[in-house]
Design a protein around this nucleic acid. Structure first.
Length: 436
RNA sequence: GUGGGUAUAGCUCAGUGGUUAGAGUGUCGGGUUGUGGCCUCGAAGGCCGAGGGUUCAAGUCCCUCUACCCACCCCA
């Protein structure tokens, strides 16, 4: 008989029990912080109609939509992110949703990527969004939330970079780079800190940008680490530009609120060169990064005031962010954190032989009813094997239900750590192992 | 889409062109028919990624393909 070769699609993962313990621990931290910020849970289907997803992410993003072959394709696709389906929900249930609407969502998304480290075809996003608020106070709340989650996770050295779509557009405008070439220029500029000035200059000249314009681009977007100062300087140098002025006003307010709210300045930084690829961003944009390991961004987000309007005809402002769960866990593992995110203590009940199985199950049921995590070894075989199982699954205590002891109305309880055994009356097992 | 690397046991990997391809780990069993870890003995488990070529001889050298990994781009 031919064996079916066990395998999974590239870019997807299995999560074995040890992985899941860490994962659920991390999800728990994130979820708890979302809840303390007043966000409510939401979930949407894995699949969406194709036209729900298209026309929102930009060309590059759209090419990565995971189309399904259903009815020949272009009919149904796996969701690419959590943001757009949420916008669909806002439009679809307007009678049930109270604005401002704050929801969080922890679900998988799919992208037809070529996978590599930190980049998967199926991955979990942890989104938190505020819908219906135009004021940048909402964006500030999102940045505070990211900062707090990073703090909860214990990530040293994580920084959230903040920029504004309209600021970059204004900068490009001011040096005579038209809208058609602005996106390309933004992308090249964004690489400055990664690949260095020389490489970026080369790329600009190759793309036909004048050296003078590039110089101006560099000097305009220079930062000192003091966001307020940098913003007012940019404001002076970009005077007159409507887009830039609006952006600088927004960003100035965000950084003022962050300071007043008491957010540690080292955790948030103004990054006028930050470009974000998704097309739907219209205002402030954020990206959270760590320097080690090199894993791309841990979180990303921004304001997208136009997406809901695509479903309703009336623009509804919205802002939010997505945490990349797998990348966060990659950092966690890289730094050796939460390695002991172990299971709750477990008791294993072993029946010596088939005759004792019923009694073993009865004892287990009593323990379970009193809230003790209890496993019963349901297979036959030698005691050696049963104890080996207890050892390898990390059982803290083993209850041995055997004929000799049972005839005297007792069972043995073994502490797997110390190896010590004691006899306990059958009726008192629960008292002996139960929680106080 | 571009550039690198890897492919041998379930897993991690050794293996100078030359008998019957190995180790560790995991699985099963024995050493102990009432007790785990440590130790010890044994067993099962391989189309050496696929196809072609060179050679007396290929896991080993060459070519093609495929798959996976890494980097770039972009993203979480």
């Amino acid at each position: 008989m031919d064996i079916i070769k066990p395998r999974i699609m590239k870019g997807t993962r299995d999560f074995l029990p040890d992985d899941m313990r860490v994962r659920e621990h991390v999800i728990g931290i994130i979820k708890k912080r979302f809840e303390t910020y007043g966000f409510s849970p939401l979930a949407t289907p894995a699949m969406e109609y194709y036209d729900i997803l298209t026309g929102k992410y930009g060309d590059e993003g759209e090419g990565l939509i995971f189309d399904l072959a259903y009815k020949g394709g272009k009919e149904v696709a796996l969701k690419y992110d959590l943001t757009v389906p949420m916008c669909r929900v806002i439009a679809q249930y307007q009678d049930k949703i109270v604005m401002p609407f704050k929801r969080y969502q922890i679900q998988p998304v799919w992208r037809a990527e070529k996978p590599q480290r930190g980049r998967l075809r199926e991955f979990f996003q942890c989104d938190a969004d505020i819908v219906g608020v135009k004021d940048t106070a909402a964006d500030t709340e999102i940045i505070c939330l990211i900062t707090d989650v990073m703090g909860d996770l214990g990530f040293e050295g994580s920084v959230t970079l903040v920029n504004h779509r309209k600021l970059l557009a204004g900068v490009m405008e001011s040096i005579g780079i038209g809208e058609d070439r602005a996106a390309a220029a933004m992308r090249v500029l964004d690489k400055l800190d990664k690949v260095g000035e020389e490489a970026v200059r080369a790329e600009f000249s190759e793309a036909g940008f004048a050296a003078g314009a590039v110089d101006k681009l560099f000097s305009l977007t220079e930062t000192t680490g003091n966001a307020a100062k940098d913003l007012s300087r940019m404001g002076r140098e970009l005077s007159g530009g409507g887009l830039a002025a609006e952006a600088i006003g927004d960003l100035t307010k965000i950084f003022r609120l962050l300071a007043e709210a008491g957010i540690e300045p080292s955790r948030v930084s103004f990054a006028p060169r930050l470009a974000r690829g998704l097309a739907y961003y219209t205002g402030p944009v954020f990206e959270t990064v760590v320097t080690t390991p090199r894993i791309g961004s841990l979180a990303g987000g921004g304001r997208y005031d136009g997406v809901i309007g695509l479903f309703t005809g009336i623009d509804v402002p919205a802002t939010g962010m997505a945490l990349g769960l797998e990348r966060i866990i990659e950092v966690v593992n890289d730094r050796g954190m939460f390695a002991d995110a172990a299971a709750a203590e477990m008791v294993l009940v072993i029946a010596f032989g088939d005759a004792e199985m019923g009694q073993a199950m009865k004892i287990a049921h009593e323990l379970r009813r009193s809230g003790v995590n209890t496993d019963v070894y349901t297979d036959g075989g030698k005691l050696k094997k049963k104890f080996s199982y207890a050892d390898r699954t990390g059982a803290a205590k083993v209850v041995i239900v055997a004929p000799d002891e049972l005839s005297r109305g007792v069972v043995k309880i073994k502490d797997m750590k110390t190896g010590q055994e004691k006899e306990v009356e059958v009726s008192r097992v629960r008292d002996s192992l139960g929680r106080p």
